[in-house]
């Protein structure tokens, strides 16, 4: 099986880099990053990653807006998306999970187990 390919989208440099480091080092996956919703839409069409980890609160295109663009794109409509959110209220997390996403991962995430959380949501064998 070829290596899992993940696109991480977050406007914060540190979060992007930690997630990338964690998924590559702990999960052994191939991780690329995007710093905004626009960049995500552009990259996703070309790269066709196995999953997109998408921050919810970003300047410019927000997570849900980016999601809508992805679903409108012919090449990106089928890519599973997982939201990353620092929202503390469970009600907000619930609302996000009602959107067309595979799941929601709460921030702060644990870099030791991030790949397992992603695998669990997508039903991938570890």
């Amino acid at each position: 099986m070829s290596r899992r390919r993940v696109l991480i989208v977050d406007d914060e440099d540190d979060i992007r880099e930690v997630a990338q480091m964690s998924l590559e080092l702990v999960g052994g996956w191939e991780a690329t990053t995007a710093g905004s919703g626009d960049e995500c839409v552009a990259r996703a069409a070309g790269d066709a990653p196995d999953v997109i980890l998408l921050d919810v609160m970003m300047p410019g295109l927000s997570g849900p807006e980016t999601l809508a663009r992805l679903r409108d794109g012919r090449d990106t409509v089928g890519i599973p998306v997982i939201f990353l959110t620092a929202k503390a209220q469970s009600s907000e997390t619930r609302l996000l999970s009602e959107l067309d996403v595979a799941g929601v991962i709460a921030k702060p995430f644990d870099p030791m187990t991030l790949h397992e959380d992603v695998s669990a949501i997508l039903g991938w064998s570890p």
């Binding site: 080092l25 999970s97 009602e98 067309d100 929601v104 702060p108 870099p111 959380d117 949501i121």
Partner: peptide
């Protein structure tokens, strides 16, 4: 549609701890 919600706080089903050496590398990188 309802989808799974995961947080780092919930212990997953019996995870294998990552090998010690790899854990240390992650800590260094962090």
């Amino acid at each position: 549609m309802s989808t799974p919600v995961s947080s780092a706080g919930e212990p997953g089903p019996a995870r294998e701890p990552p090998p010690r050496a790899r854990g240390d590398r992650v800590l260094d990188a962090l």
